[in-house]
Nucleic acid binder design. Structure first.
Lengths: 236, 236
DNA sequence: TTCACACGTCAATGGCGTTGACGTAAGCTT
DNA sequence: AAGCTTACGTCAACGCCATTGACGTGTGAA
């Protein structure tokens, strides 16, 4: 008797599948991400992933205990990709903005992994590096530690919360997403000015604005408020 | 031939199930919320809901076209509960703050349901009323329509995103949540000042701050930034 | 050259949402 | 009060899902 899952490090026997593919943890994670990117949110299932790999679906269970373990591995990969190639400019506002937008767009590009990952603390290297960097930006900008920590918290939670929110929207089955958009016109476009004067008065603006993520503007608002809290250069 | 779903308003024949339950949209939504609260989000399935109602599972399809429609009804019920008893004070900042905190706390009190519902557009009465009210607060405060709409969008998305985030954390199984916190101390508390100087320098503050939701401070930041955008009383 | 067993495969289980057909009883009409 | 329509609860079935246990082959070590 042996454990079903063998850790990637101690894996030795690599045996090709009937269709000739040689599996590995890395290949499976990459294939999963590609599957999501190419065929949308609902395309990721054990069966389809098996098919995409050219292997029996249950071969996956030799590499991951279950689908949740697979998704965590995918999520870890995501955190790394969000920071890939990022470098500090030295301007705290530019750097914070870049960090926020990178997290947001990276998660939105990989919705259902993001939906699961955004509210977990992994404690893994990619995550700790991001925390370190953001704190560094704030402390480098002159914020005292207690304020830097509070701002860090608000900033990170906002980035992750919006990322999860946007990812969840992107991960909806096509039918549900289309219905959500249709609701805007079918319902909000037809509310009477008598009962809903504010919606009626602003509907065209509303319908246009709600198509995009609210994050960029919310991020700008936060950055502006943070700027107002910043100590002056020659303080003390 | 008839449509499978009859609108609740024009429903006339109420026929008890074999087990004696008399179904209604309201009963189904309440039962779904109770089921989720008691047994977690994953406990909500057509079959289990049918069992909890004392009816054949497929009887639900006489009331909701599919599970997505049911979920939207549940989501709207939550929005309604968040607004229960709210009245405007006339001070836009007080009113916006109250709205945000109410949504946040209501969703956190129903974490399992919130996690499912927070990112959907229902188009149902409770939702349209909330939209109308928030737009009213902003327009009443003197914001021009285009700006009011952008602020509305950022405000609502942030409230829902944080609510979902906090709800997701609250919805974690006790064991997993404890383990997450333990990992947090074990990993972040032991990072070397050489590799992670900023984390090491702020760890006690960080550990204390991260225990609570980041929303209240993020909300205050947003309100402050919005105040700065507000036209002066005697403008133009 | 042998041999243990890792790992790809297969079959099967029990869950899921959803559909179409069916019959019964509810509530209208007369 | 009788009859009719049909709403709505029920049943059976479909195709999807993740996951498990058993099996045998070929790999890599000895």
């Amino acid at each position: 008797m042996s454990e079903r899952v063998v850790p990637e490090g101690s894996r030795q026997r690599r045996r090709p599948t009937k269709q000739g593919a040689v599996l590995s943890e890395r290949l499976i994670v990459d294939t999963a991400l590609r599957l999501i990117a190419q065929h949308g949110a609902e395309a990721l299932s054990v069966r389809r992933l098996g098919a995409a790999l050219g292997a029996d679906p249950t071969a996956l269970y030799r590499y991951f205990r279950n689908t949740d373990a697979l998704l965590l591995a995918v999520a870890d990969e995501l955190i790394g990709r969000a920071q890939e190639g990022w470098t500090a400019t030295g301007d705290w506002r530019t750097d914070l903005r870049a960090m926020g937008l990178r997290i947001n767009s990276c998660y939105r590009n990989n919705p259902q992994a993001a939906a699961l990952a955004a509210h977990r603390t992994t404690g893994r290297p990619h995550e700790t590096r991001a925390v370190e960097r953001i704190l560094g930006i704030l402390r480098g900008a002159g914020f005292p530690d207690d304020l830097a920590v509070r701002i860090y918290h608000a900033f990170v939670d906002q980035a992750l919360a919006f990322a999860a929110q946007d990812a969840a929207a992107a991960a909806l089955p096509t039918a549900a997403r289309e219905k959500d958009e249709e609701v805007w016109h079918a319902v909000y476009g037809r509310l009477s000015p008598d009962t809903h004067p504010n919606i009626a008065a602003t509907f065209p603006l509303l319908a246009a604005d709600m198509r995009d993520s609210g994050y960029p503007f919310a991020l700008e608002l936060m950055l502006a408020a943070v700027e107002a809290l910043r100590p002056t250069e020659q303080g003390g």
